[in-house]
């Protein structure tokens, strides 16, 4: 199948390759020619991309396109058959579980359905990482309250996961992922199965992380409204510290969000959302229009 899309390399947003390192330090995540297959089935076929510091990379694609696999590879839950994965400039491809534990400390992971521990309360879920590290309880409590405030769920602190709605579970999942201030946050279809207003709340959290906390992230989704929010809105703080969301183009232009699109293990698009919308590729056009 021939595609009339220009394969865009990760330097394209900046004119010179050097500024990439100079201005932003090492990329947060880099995939170089990553390949993965289960038995005869190719999951990822020679994938290369970069997530810069503070950038949000939206990964689009249908089911089975390999989107979630990318996240599992970053966390080291899966290992590639070939290629290199770098996190903060460090080659983690051959790290064993023990070494990955150190890397994972700096990565927050938001799972599709929240993946909260059923047997633990909201408090214990959010505190999980700190309890494992035997942090002082007073400090744990302070941190848990702070994180729950960030996702606007202080009231649910003593509830059990079974008492929460779908959207609340995702938000607790986000709070849990943010404990320890990771510089990388991975979202695996965080809005799947949520109603549009709740989905928007989740996206706003991702936008806040990107614009106010300078977090680098990968946002895997197949929902077009997620793309819309993340690539057209940004968060700012006003003088009293209140968060506002503004549309791109009013005052600023979004540079820190890019899209890659996967199809059957191949990257068929990489670039800005505007470029995505102008593409002639029939598969992408169909995907965008939801047909």
């Amino acid at each position: 199948m021939t595609l009339d899309i220009e394969v865009v390399h990760h330097h394209h947003a900046y004119e010179t390759g050097e500024t990439l390192v100079g201005e932003f330090g090492l990329p947060a995540i880099e995939f170089r020619n990553v390949e993965l297959a289960f038995d005869d089935q190719v999951i990822l076929d020679n994938i290369s991309f970069t997530v810069r510091r503070g950038e949000t990379k939206i990964v689009l694609g249908g089911s089975g396109s390999g989107k979630s696999t990318i996240i599992n590879l970053i966390l080291g839950l899966l290992k590639p058959d070939a290629g290199t994965i770098l996190i903060d400039g460090e080659d983690v491809t051959d790290f064993d579980d023990q070494e990955m534990m150190r890397i994972r400390k700096n990565i927050g992971m938001v799972f599709q359905e929240g993946a909260l521990f059923d047997s633990l309360s909201v408090y214990e879920n959010v505190a999980y990482r700190l309890h494992e590290e035997k942090v002082d309880e007073e400090e744990v409590e302070h941190e848990v309250v702070r994180m729950l405030q960030f996702v606007n769920l202080e009231d649910a602190i003593d509830k059990m996961p079974s008492e929460l709605s779908g959207g609340m579970r995702r938000r607790v999942g986000i709070a849990r992922a943010l404990v320890g201030n990771p510089s990388i946050v991975l979202f695996d279809e965080p809005t799947a199965g949520l109603d549009p207003p709740t989905a928007r709340t989740i996206c706003e959290l991702a936008i806040k992380l990107r614009d106010l906390e300078d977090v680098s992230s990968i946002f895997v989704t197949h929902e077009m409204n997620n793309l819309e929010y993340l690539s057209s809105e940004y968060a700012t703080l006003d003088r009293v510290g209140e968060v506002h969301f503004e549309l791109e183009g009013e005052r600023l232009c979004l540079l820190n969000t890019e899209v890659i699109m996967l199809k059957q293990g191949d990257i068929i698009f990489s670039g800005k959302d505007e470029q995505l919308r102008q593409t002639e590729d029939p598969y992408i056009r169909r995907f965008l229009r939801g047909k």
């Binding site: 966390l75 994972r104 799972f111 993946a115 909260l116 059923d118 990482r129 494992e132």
Partner: peptide, 18 residues
Amino acid sequence: GSMVVSQQIDAMRALGTS
């Protein structure tokens, strides 16, 4: 098994616990 299916095992590993 339910922890695997609901990704709690993955979450555990992602949070740095074996």
